[in-house]
Structure formats: C-alpha cells, structure tokens
C-alpha cells in the first residue's frame, strides 16, 4: 500500500473525531492528533481501533504508546501490514 493511500485512509478515519478543521485541512505527517487536530485523548483510542479495522492489523499497547502524530500512525501501519 502506498504512503499516500495510507494517509488518505487515515484522514478519513480521524475526521469524525477532529475538533480543529484547520488542522484537518493541513493534514500531513507532522500533524499531531491532540495538539493540531484537537482530538480528545479518549477518542484517540477510538482512532486506534478504527485503524485496526481499516487496515486489518492489530496495534498492541506498546505500539499504541507512541502513536501521537499522523507520521507515527503511518509508520506503525507500515510495520504491521503484510509485506508485498
């Protein structure tokens, strides 16, 4: 899966939880889920579940710890997706 496709799917996942439209318009790897998108921390756990469903992967609690930006999420998804 291309990086662009991962980011497009991620953006769609986070949309319902975002409280800053400005952050969403500026969606990029550096985007911080809490600071830039103003997603509340309880909803960040919802995002992680939705990512698991969308990409059919399992995000263990150790990986979840570091999922603070779009780039963090992308890297975790790439690592968990089957190669090829």
């Amino acid at each position: 899966m291309s990086e662009k496709e991962i980011l497009t799917r991620l953006k769609k996942i986070v949309e319902p939880y975002v409280q800053s439209l400005e952050g969403l318009q500026n969606f990029k790897e550096e985007t911080d889920f809490l600071n830039d998108l103003q997603i509340n921390s309880a909803n960040l756990v919802d995002v992680i579940l939705d990512v698991e469903d969308e990409f059919n992967i399992e995000i263990d609690n150790d990986s979840m710890e570091g999922m603070l930006t779009v780039g963090d999420a992308k890297a975790i998804i790439q690592r968990k997706l089957p190669q090829g």
Partner: peptide, 17 residues
C-alpha cells in the same frame, strides 16, 4: 457527552485502556 460513547460495552476499547 461521554455516556453516548458506550465505551464500557466495547471489550476491545476496555482492553486498550
């Protein structure tokens, strides 16, 4: 707001938190 989320009914959520 929180009660509408029904988080306690979702075991996957509970297991992450």
């Amino acid at each position: 707001l929180a009660r509408t989320e029904k988080k306690s009914e979702n075991l996957r959520i509970l297991q992450k938190i």
